[in-house]
Amino acid sequence: MNEQHTPEGWYQDGQDPTVDRWWDGTRWTGATRPRVAPGAPPVGQPATVVVAPEPPKKRHRVRNAFLLVVGVIVLIMIIQAATGGDDETPATASQEDGGEAEGDAGPGIGDPAEDGDFTFVVESVEDGPERIGTDAFGTSPQGRFVYVTITVTNHGDEASSFFGDNQYLVDTEGRKASADTEAALYLPESQSLYEEINPGNTLTGTVVFDIPADAVPAAVELHDSLFSGGVTVGLS
């Protein structure tokens, strides 16, 4: 090999094959480096660095799912706190048998019946008028109005809200009617739309129901809140 025409660059050292020595085009210099492995890029060209893709960041998906579950739990707690819900129903009536506990006919008109923080006493049940309110401002039933007068006592430790909309009337055919909120608007003495009752206080109000003209009321299902178990009071 004519060394005069050898281009400058790194070449394997003839005395130490584990290193390369720098040829400046005319002579060998004292510069050395570890021997370049086979397949390495030519001298003077940068090596291509291949970066492996990062694995999917599962932590973010797990964290987002956890936050979603926590949010749902907090929302349920807020709803229960706002409605004063108590899912436990006292043993004054059984929900599975329509209010009749074994060996007991269950509470009826004039009997106390508890649900959550409320003690209910159904005072009376009677047919309402053909129209509630005036000709200009009032409403008529689809079937017929029934008035259920109820005394409600808060036996809990904090204020709770009584909603007529949380109460139901069941007829002898098992049909369950919700309270008629619009009709209660035109009944000043109703006191069943929304009333907050402080601990130890008692309220008497009339809940209005619109039931079929030929329906026979059999029981009322009373609740201290939207999500409570409720208690059934017989009307016969």
Rank of each mutant, 00 (worst) to 15 (best):
V231W: 04
Y168E: 00
D86Q: 04
S160I: 10
Q4T: 13
G85S: 14
G116R: 06
D224P: 04
G99N: 01
D171E: 02
T32L: 08
V36L: 11
K176R: 03
V70G: 09
D157E: 11
Q15D: 14
V233P: 00
T206L: 13
I132M: 10
D86N: 06
T134A: 02
S140A: 14
A159N: 07
G229Y: 08
V216C: 06
L226G: 07
E189T: 15
A184Y: 08
A219S: 09
Q95E: 03
P141L: 05
A177I: 01
S190C: 12
D13F: 12
L75G: 07
L226V: 13
H223S: 06
Q45C: 07
Y168Q: 00
E114R: 14
L169I: 02
P56L: 13
P107S: 04
A40M: 14
G200T: 05
G110V: 01
V207M: 12
N154Q: 05
Y194M: 14
F118M: 08
G71W: 12
P107W: 03
V70Y: 06
D24Y: 12
D86W: 02
A52F: 11
E182F: 11
E8W: 12
R35K: 13
A179Q: 06
T6W: 11
A183G: 05
V43G: 11
S228A: 10
I150S: 02
G103H: 01
T153K: 09
A159S: 11
V148K: 00
V122I: 01
I197F: 04
A184M: 15
D157C: 04
G106I: 00
V207C: 13
I211S: 02
G234K: 03
N201W: 07
A81T: 06
A218G: 06
S161G: 09
N154V: 05
V122E: 00
L235E: 01
G39V: 09
L193E: 13
Q4C: 14
Q95T: 03
A177N: 05
P212H: 02
Q4W: 13
V50R: 14
Q12P: 10
E126C: 02
P107K: 04
P112D: 03
Q15N: 14
G205Y: 11
I132P: 04
N201Y: 08
S225E: 06
P217N: 06
A219D: 00
T83Y: 13
V216M: 09
L203P: 03
L187A: 05
L226N: 13
T139P: 07
D180W: 12
L193M: 15
K58S: 12
N154W: 03
A177M: 07
Q142R: 15
Y186N: 01
Y194N: 14
E189L: 14
H60F: 14
L67C: 09
D115I: 04
G174P: 10
G133K: 07
A81E: 07
G25L: 05
V148P: 00
Y168H: 01
H155E: 09
R175D: 02
G110T: 00
V43Q: 12
D24N: 15
N64H: 14
G85M: 07
V220Q: 00
P42Y: 10
V50M: 10
V216F: 05
E182H: 11
T149Q: 08
F120D: 02
G133V: 11
V122S: 00
N198G: 11
D117K: 07
R33M: 03
A65W: 08
P107Q: 05
L169Q: 01
D180E: 13
D210N: 15
A219E: 00
E221Y: 09
Q15P: 05
N154T: 04
Q95N: 04
Q142W: 09
